[in-house]
Design a protein around this nucleic acid. Structure first.
Lengths: 200, 200
DNA sequence: TGAAGAAAAGCACGATCGGTCGTAGCATCG
DNA sequence: CGATGCTACGACCGATCGTGCTTTTCTTCA
């Protein structure tokens, strides 16, 4: 079997550790020192793979995005177009939030909140780009639901995406701040209400 | 004229600077060094007024809360009970968000997002307590609207508060992440939709 | 006015941060 | 096999952090 070059294997391992670390202390708390310790490598050894902290953050973020696509987006898209697909996206996202390590929850939403007030830079740009993609995806699903005749013809897909993300974020935030899962119920109720008002 | 003791005046001045600073760099970015520079006082001089950074953060947070009560809550409560009062709260809050210095916006919501994943401590507890008070206030307003016959009798006030806060937070977040005010429109639409479904 | 006490300054500490540098060892490939 | 180049190391840097300790300066009030 064609084993990957050692450097690639090391890097992949380090990146997995970085993702776990970012999941528990955030991307800003993802320091070279702690990551080096956790990964069993020297701090300076990390610089062979990541040219700066920002570089490390971005690569870790991309790994998280790939995981989100695998675990949430792809399963949703396998559902049939329209409301079922949207429901599945919501369900998957709720699970994804709950599967995230305490106390951070959804690492992508965490990043969005963490960098929304950061000075401009590559990491912030990556976060904004990710958000834009998500917004676009939800808009597309909403448009499909309109075309399928399930959503009201006068529905603004962008407005739907804004509110959909709002519900997801509200759950994420309540879970982090109050440290209970009881708000999943409220988020689901809000989502159902949102769906109901979108139906004809 | 009975002038306040000088120390009190100094402390009040420093606290105002601290609030401005926290508004632009967050409570975690509120460091003794930068605050000392901004307030024209020495770093160690600050210790005469604040026994620790946490103490400084908490006192600054309380000042912000007082301002929120003055500028948003009190005007709302002067409106008549029920839907008008709730509308006024929402309007005032939107203005409050927009009046906040770029890029942070509402400093209280900022703090909620900043400390929701922080380790337990006095500051986090203060933030959680503030959130609880806000949630309780909104619940009360919703109950009043039910009693006034404006909201559906079957409405769950806690659910309403959850969604109300969700809309406010969604606007706050979108404004910070995307750095435009165009989402005020979306937030308002979401709020109107929320109100509409609460009406009988 | 002068004594007592508080406010502020000055200085230094240990820790942690992101990051650099020279070097040694080991994997890779001709 | 042997040369080359990447990987990883340890030491170290300057900056910044929160927070002591000591000393000076200024307020306050009898």
């Amino acid at each position: 079997m064609a084993t990957l070059p050692k450097s690639e294997r090391t890097k992949a391992r380090v990146l997995r550790e970085a993702l776990a670390l970012a999941g528990s202390v955030g991307f800003s708390g993802l320091t070279f020192g702690t990551l080096a310790e956790q990964a069993g490598i020297s701090k300076s050894g990390l610089f062979a793979h990541f040219e700066s902290k920002e570089d490390l953050q971005i690569q870790t973020l991309h790994l998280a995005e790939d995981m989100f696509v695998d675990r949430v987006l792809r399963p949703a898209v396998q559902e049939e177009r329209g409301a079922p697909r949207i429901r599945r996206l919501f369900d998957g996202w709720m699970d994804w939030i709950q599967s995230g390590a305490e106390p951070r929850g959804d690492i992508l939403t965490s990043a969005a909140f963490e960098f929304d007030d950061a000075p401009d830079g590559p990491m912030r740009a990556a976060v904004v780009a990710g958000h834009g993609k998500m917004q676009g995806t939800i808009e597309r699903l909403a448009r499909q639901a309109v075309e399928a005749g399930q959503f009201n013809r006068k529905l603004d897909p962008a407005q739907f995406a804004f509110e959909f993300l709002g519900v997801v974020h509200a759950h994420h935030h309540a879970r982090r701040l109050l440290r209970t899962d009881q708000h999943a119920r409220r988020a689901r109720a809000a989502f159902e209400r949102l769906l109901a008002t979108c139906m004809a």
